[in-house]
Design a protein around this nucleic acid. Structure first.
Length: 332
DNA sequence: TAGTCGTGGGC
DNA sequence: TGCCCAAGACT
C-alpha cells in the first residue's frame, strides 16, 4: 500500500498516516490487496481526512464502496469516522484498548493500527500470521480452535523495539513466501526454524474444520424505467445481505422464487439468468424488465433520475442484473 | 459458538 | 469447473 513507511524511514522517525492505515486495514479484511488498491486510492482522493469522511453523505460512501463487498464494513467505516471526530477530536486513538471500542475495529485491526501507525507493542493475528505460526510450530490443531495457541506463539515473536516493522514483516512473510498452496520455503528467512518444514507438513497447515456445502437460492430482480428514463431502485435495509446498498427491487431469495412485482406492468423476462456466488449460498437470479408510464406509482422503491444513476454505485450482483436488463431497456 | 456477510482471482 | 480462498467483524 502506498502509505507504507519502510524500516529505515521509520527508524528516522517517519510514521504512516493513521487515517490511511485504518482505511487500508478495514478494506483489507478478507479482501485481496489487488482489489483494495484502487478503492483506497479513490477514498483518500475524495475524502483526504477522517473529518471529511465523517461529513460525507451515507449514500456517497456506500456508492464508493460498491463492488468491494462486505458492506457492513462501509457502514461501520462511517460510524467509526464520526466517532473519531465526535469523541476523539478528529485524531485516531493510539492504543489497542481504545481502538477496539470503535465500530468495525476488531482484535486484528486494533492490533494492526496500534502497531503500524503508533508502534504500540500489539500482536497482529490474521490469516497470514495464523498460517506462519501453525507451520513454524507444526501445530495441527484445526482453526478456529487453534487461534489462542497461535496467538501465544505470535506474541513470542512480537518485537518490543519495532512492533510496527514486525507486524508488517510477519504478514508480508505469509502473503508472499509462506503462502497457502506452494510456500517458497527455499527462500524463507526462517526456514531453519520451521518445524513444519522439517516434518514436511507445511502444505497441510493450517488445518481447518470442514465447511458446510453451499445451497442454491433463486430470486427475481425487477428492473423498470419510467417514461422519462428514471430507474426504479431501492435502498436496502441496513441489516442483512447487501445492507445499506442501492439495488433493484427483488423477490426474497429462497428455494423457489415467488413472483412479487413491485408494480403491475408488462414485464419482459430476460432470456438468461444472472448467477452469483455469495459467501454461504449460490444465487440464480431471473431478471424482468419493464417500461412504466410517467405517472407510475410503484409500491416499492423510488425513481432515480437517469443522469444521477450509475451502475457503478450498485453491488456486483445488481450490476450483473443490470447488464442483462440493458439489452432490453435501451436508452430513451 | 457457529452463522452471517461479497467479490474476483487462482488453480 | 467448482472450490478455495484474502490483511475479520459482528451477533
Amino acid at each position: 500500500m502506498p502509505w507504507r513507511v519502510m524500516p529505515d524511514d521509520r527508524k528516522a522517525g517517519v510514521m504512516p498516516n493513521p487515517y490511511a492505515v485504518w482505511l487500508s486495514e478495514v478494506m483489507l479484511q478478507q479482501t485481496t490487496v489487488a482489489a483494495v488498491r484502487q478503492y483506497h486510492q479513490k477514498f483518500t482522493r475524495i475524502w483526504p481526512t477522517v473529518a471529511e469522511l465523517a461529513a460525507a453523505e451515507d449514500a456517497d460512501v456506500m456508492a464508493a464502496w460498491a463492488g468491494l463487498g462486505y458492506y457492513a464494513r462501509a457502514r461501520n467505516l462511517l460510524k467509526c469516522a464520526r466517532a473519531v471526530v465526535a469523541d476523539h477530536g478528529g485524531a485516531f486513538p493510539q492504543t489497542y484498548d481504545d481502538l477496539i471500542t470503535l465500530p468495525g475495529i476488531g482484535p486484528y485491526t486494533a492490533a494492526a493500527i496500534s502497531a503500524i501507525a503508533f508502534d504500540e507493542v500489539s500482536t497482529v493475528l490474521d490469516g497470514n500470521v495464523e498460517r506462519v505460526m501453525a507451520r513454524l510450530y507444526d501445530d495441527h490443531t484445526p482453526l478456529p480452535a487453534a487461534k489462542p495457541v497461535l496467538m501465544d506463539y505470535a506474541q513470542r515473536h512480537t518485537s518490543n523495539e519495532r512492533p510496527g516493522d514486525y507486524a508488517q514483516a510477519v504478514m508480508d512473510l505469509g502473503a508472499t513466501i509462506c503462502t497457502p498452496k506452494s510456500p517458497a520455503c527455499g527462500i524463507c528467512p526462517i526456514m531453519v526454524e520451521c518445524a513444519a518444514r522439517a516434518a514436511g507438513s507445511q502444505t497441510e497447515l493450517p488445518k481447518k474444520t470442514p465447511k458446510k456445502p453451499k445451497p442454491t437460492r433463486h430470486g427475481i430482480a425487477y428492473i423498470a424505467r419510467r417514461a422519462d428514463g428514471a430507474w426504479l431502485l431501492e435502498t436496502r435495509p441496513d441489516k442483512g445481505l447487501l445492507g445499506g446498498m442501492l439495488g433493484w427491487p427483488t423477490t426474497e431469495w429462497g428455494d423457489a422464487p415467488d413472483e412479487y412485482e413491485p408494480i403491475s406492468a408488462d414485464w419482459i423476462e430476460s432470456d438468461t439468468e444472472a448467477r452469483h456466488t455469495f459467501t454461504h449460498f449460490n444465487l440464480v437470479l431471473r431478471v424482468q424488465t419493464a417500461w412504466l408510464p410517467q405517472d407510475a406509482s410503484p409500491n416499492r422503491g423510488q425513481f432515480m433520475p437517469e443522469d444521477t444513476f450509475s451502475p457503478s454505485a450498485l453491488p456486483t450482483v445488481m450490476q450483473k442484473a443490470y447488464t442483462l436488463a440493458a439489452a432490453t431497456l435501451r436508452p430513451v
